[in-house]
Design a protein around this nucleic acid. Sequence first.
DNA 1: CCCTATGTTCAACGTTTATTGAACTATTGA
DNA 2: TCAATAGTTCAATAAACGTTGAACATAGGG
Lengths: 125, 125
Amino acid sequence: MSRTPLHPTREQIELPMVLDCLSDPIRMAIVYQLAQQERVSSELCCGDFTALAGKSNLAYHFAKLRECGLMLTRVAGTNRFMRLRREDLDARFPGLLDAVISSAAKDAERLQLMSECETVAAARS
Amino acid sequence: MSRTPLHPTREQIELPMVLDCLSDPIRMAIVYQLAQQERVSSELCCGDFTALAGKSNLAYHFAKLRECGLMLTRVAGTNRFMRLRREDLDARFPGLLDAVISSAAKDAERLQLMSECETVAAARS
DNA sequence: CCCTATGTTCAACGTTTATTGAACTATTGA
DNA sequence: TCAATAGTTCAATAAACGTTGAACATAGGG
C-alpha cells in the first residue's frame, strides 16, 4: 500500500472530469454523504460506504473521485479518511458544488441518497 | 423527418443525465453557445455548430442534449432551431446551469469554447 | 419537377466504462 | 507471531459511448 495517493493540484482540476464524476449515481451518493459530513467536520472512510457497492467497486469510484479533484484521501493506518476538496472546488468553480449538492438533495429519494440522519447515525456507529 | 422530436417533461429531467451530458466537451460547447445566445434572445440551428464536429456527430449530440432535457428543438422547414430549457432547468435544479456556464466561461480557453463575440458574429452571418 | 440544403438514421468501429471476484498488501491487536 | 481488518490491484466481462461515412427524408427555390 503506497502512502498518500496522487491528487491533482487545484489548477489541474478540470470541469468535464468533475461533471463526469458526478454523473455516476454511486459517486454522487459518495459526494453527497461527504457533503453532509462537512457539517460535523469529520471525515469518512471507505467502510462507511459499503451500503453503496462492493469493496473493489468502491475503490474504483474513490480513485475516480480523487483523480478528478473532488475529494482528498488521507492515509491513517489501515484506514483512508476522505473529505471533499471544498476550498479548491469553490475557488475553481464558484457555486458549482453547492448547486450540485442542493440539486441532488431535492432529488434525494429518486437518487437513492442516504438521508442526513442516516448519514450521521452511520458515522457515529 | 418526423415532426417535433421527443422532449422529456420538466419532472422527467434527471440530474445524473444532465451532468453526464455536460461532461462531454462538444456538448458543453453547444450549451455554452446556446447560453450566450440567450442574451440576444434568438435561437441557433444545427448549421451554427459545424465548427465543432461533423453533421452526423452533431445530430448525435443534439439528440442527447434534447433527451436529457437540456435543450428544446423546434422544427421549422428544413431547419431545427434550438435553445436552452432555461426555465425548466432553473426550476428543477436552481443555480446549477448558471454555475456550470460561469465555470465553463472561466475555463473558456482550456475548453476551447467560442468567445462571445465569435458566437454573436457567427449568428449574425 | 428536379436540385440543393438541412438534418436524421443506420451500421460499423474502436474505446472507455462499471462491475465482479480473487489475489494481494499493509496495519493493528491479541 | 498469527489472525483479522481495511483497502488496493488485477484480469475478465458486458454494456455504453463517441465518431465516421453512407444512405435517407424533408422542405424550399429555380
